[in-house]
Nucleic acid binder design. Structure first.
Length: 401
DNA sequence: TGATGTTTACGCCCTA
DNA sequence: TAGGGCGTAAACATCA
């Protein structure tokens, strides 16, 4: 299934020294059991957590979430406690984490603050200068901030777009989001940014939406194809099972490629079974240049400023999100995988809706390998209410920061 | 001029 | 081993 994630640190001359020790994040290859947490946890490094045996993998994942949330392109400031709901289910973790895990020594970390940025400093590789366990700087050289995240560029782009309130980002915003979230990408920008651009252009799952004339600026907005939602099965943002491909004629296909990446598909089935026939997906992509731009507005406004076509596109998307998600377990916002964007980008509302009972159940599953955990990360996201809470119209998360 | 966007090519790795 | 996903490089075009 998911391929092993190769550690890539091409430009670190002493890369091996960073990961010479077993704590380095390893292959996510065998996802069957405990994949998510093992791999995520190892990737994350969790320098401060190595001494925290009780720390569940799930909690690691959650900490990762916060990084994503707090560093979103929305300009959210870290540590605002937006992820309180996440903490809701982490009562047990507080004790585990504190005080050793908290660099603050300040306000007693509520469940809210558990998820806040300061803790991330300790728990996240991205901000990997642990303040918890002082080490000899000469001997402690591992820097997980330099670990390449186990996400493909497509995954990163998808995550960035999905976490944005408007579900549209400019290229620069995507760059910024990635860099903010993953310090690894603060270097060698030319290389990975080229890959990002390549991914955006090459993959049909990304749609370019031109700016409106009254919103001048560089570059277009990029959004996700409405039918691309299930590229990452189970929400695992590591490697797509199937590529989202739009064939001539508007058929969403799984592609095949050899030699040229754009090779046409041999299959005519719609992407991952998401056979939404309501519109021509080809049109969505091919006609993207014709789309009038979005107003970079709040989602509440998104219903109107968007040009007809774009609006149609997005509203279709939203309706799909709401309606289809309710019907289809494998939907965008039904991701229940440890590497799910939901684990990275869980919204306050989502976690509010994860009832405590569910969480308690979760906490009884020590191993992340349990199929429970992934779903738990999303709590009751399978419900329409939760799904709706995650659709773009819901900006309260950002507002609450 | 630099950022953005498109396209082609190639290699690596994984899975069936 | 072929097919497919992905990363990377590079050339080129367009645009602010």
């Amino acid at each position: 299934m998911l391929g092993a994630v190769k550690m890539e640190g091409h430009d670190h001359s002493d890369w091996s020294t960073y990961y010479a020790e077993p704590e380095c994040y390893t292959s996510v290859g065998n996802m069957n059991s405990g994949f998510g947490m093992n791999s995520m946890g190892t990737y994350m490094g969790m320098t401060g957590m190595s001494s925290t045996a009780n720390m569940s993998a799930g909690s690691m994942n959650m900490s990762y979430v916060n990084a994503g949330v707090n560093h979103g392109v929305a300009g959210m400031s870290p540590g605002a406690g937006g992820m309180n709901a996440m903490g809701t289910g982490l009562a047990g973790m507080g004790a585990t984490l504190n005080p050793s895990m908290s660099p603050l020594n300040g306000p007693p970390p509520s469940m809210n603050t558990l998820a806040s940025y300061p803790n991330m400093n300790v728990m996240s590789p991205m901000y990997g200068q642990s303040t918890v366990r002082p080490r000899d700087p000469k001997t402690y050289r591992r820097s997980y901030t330099h670990a390449k995240p186990p996400y493909s560029y497509i995954s990163l782009i998808t995550m960035a777009i999905q976490q944005s309130t408007t579900k549209m980002l400019t290229l620069a915003e995507i760059y910024q989001w990635i860099q903010d979230l993953f310090p690894f990408y603060r270097q060698n920008q030319q290389r990975w940014q080229n890959s990002i651009r390549h991914s955006l252009s090459f993959n049909d799952c990304f749609i370019k939406v031109p700016r409106s004339p009254d919103k001048p600026g560089k570059g277009s907005f990029w959004t996700l194809h409405p039918d691309s939602g299930n590229m990452f099965e189970n929400g695992c943002y590591l490697r797509r099972q199937k590529r989202f491909k739009i064939e001539a004629g508007g058929i969403v296909k799984e592609s095949s490629r050899k030699g040229t990446e754009g090779g046409s598909s041999s299959s005519s089935e719609s992407c991952n079974g998401n056979d939404s026939p309501s519109h021509s997906t080809k049109d969505l992509k091919s006609s993207a240049p014709d789309l009038k731009p979005r107003e970079p507005v709040s989602p509440e406004q998104s219903a109107s400023p968007l040009p007809q076509q774009t609006h149609h596109l997005l509203s279709h998307h939203h309706s799909v999100l709401v309606d289809d998600a309710h019907l289809k377990p494998e939907h965008h916002y039904s991701f229940n995988h440890p590497f799910s964007i939901n684990n990275l980008m869980s919204s306050e509302q989502q976690h509010h809706k994860m009832d405590l009972k569910t969480y308690e159940q979760m906490m009884h599953y020590s191993g992340y390998g349990s199929s429970m955990t992934g779903a738990l990360s999303m709590g009751s996201m399978s419900t329409k209410a939760c799904l709706e809470s995650s659709i773009p119209t819901d900006t309260s998360y950002y507002q609450g920061i």
